[in-house]
Simulated assay, not measured.
Amino acid sequence: MADKIKCSHILVKKQGEALAVQERLKAGEKFGKLAKELSIDGGSAKRDGSLGYFGRGKMVKPFEDAAFRLQVGEVSEPVKSEFGYHVIKRLG
């Protein structure tokens, strides 16, 4: 298992918003474009949603668990955390 992974995410307040993000991704819209447009995580949104590389213990547990289960290139179902709902894409 990887010690560190690279992910991007789109953070929204409501589950319905996260589901709408997934639909737009399925329709072919670019993850980075949607992150800039919709994510409430201002820091990562400016970088196309990129969180860079991180290891275990660096992110909130629900996010970390979901991110480490993803294959490279895969996008998660909405993941609820104390910050809202994340749509996560594993990049590396």
Rank of each mutant, 00 (worst) to 15 (best):
K46P: 05
P62Y: 10
E17A: 11
A67D: 00
E74K: 03
E74H: 01
K89W: 00
V60G: 08
S44W: 01
G42L: 14
V12K: 10
I5Y: 00
R90Q: 06
H86N: 08
A20V: 05
G73V: 07
E77A: 12
A45R: 07
G57N: 09
I88H: 07
A45W: 01
L25R: 13
G16P: 00
Y53R: 14
S76I: 03
V21Q: 10
E23I: 15
E82H: 11
K30F: 03
E74R: 01
M1Q: 06
Y85M: 09
D41I: 08
K33G: 12
G16Q: 13
G73W: 00
E64P: 00
E17M: 09
A67S: 00
F63N: 01
L19E: 14
L51R: 11
H86C: 09
S8I: 04
F83I: 02
E82C: 08
E29H: 13
I88P: 00
E64G: 01
G16W: 00
S81L: 11
L70S: 02
M1C: 06
F63D: 01
G52Q: 11
S76Q: 07
L70N: 03
H86V: 05
E23P: 06
G73K: 07
D48I: 10
E17V: 06
G42Q: 12
Q15M: 12
G49C: 10
R69K: 15
C7S: 04
I40G: 02
H9C: 06
A2R: 14
R69I: 02
E37Q: 15
R47C: 06
F68K: 02
P78C: 04
K80G: 05
A66I: 01
G49R: 09
F83R: 13
V60P: 03
A45F: 03
K80R: 11
L51P: 00
F31T: 05
S44V: 13
V12Q: 09
K26E: 13
K13L: 06
E37L: 15
